[in-house]
């Protein structure tokens, strides 16, 4: 299981790009942290989610 934004999901084996494509996140408005480190956008396609990973997808909203 992979913990994504606090929720245990059956996403092990998928790439980060595959997981994000299955969600409604706008790729231009997000930053992704994996086990304490930011995942560069260029590595979403090659980052394979593993059992025990902890992922945080920060989806920015407008206003400032």
């Amino acid at each position: 299981m992979v913990k994504i934004n606090g929720e245990e999901l059956n996403a092990a084996g998928k790439t980060l790009a595959e997981y994000l494509a299955s969600t409604s996140y706008d790729p231009k408005r997000i930053a992704v942290e994996r086990n304490g480190d930011i995942v560069p956008k260029t590595q979403y396609g090659e980052t394979v989610l593993k059992d025990g990973d902890s992922i945080e997808v920060v989806s920015f909203v407008g206003g400032g």
Binding site: R29, I30, F60
Partner: peptide
């Protein structure tokens, strides 16, 4: 929002 994400990255 897109500028926020750009700077964060």
């Amino acid at each position: 929002a897109e500028s926020k994400a750009m700077l964060t990255g």
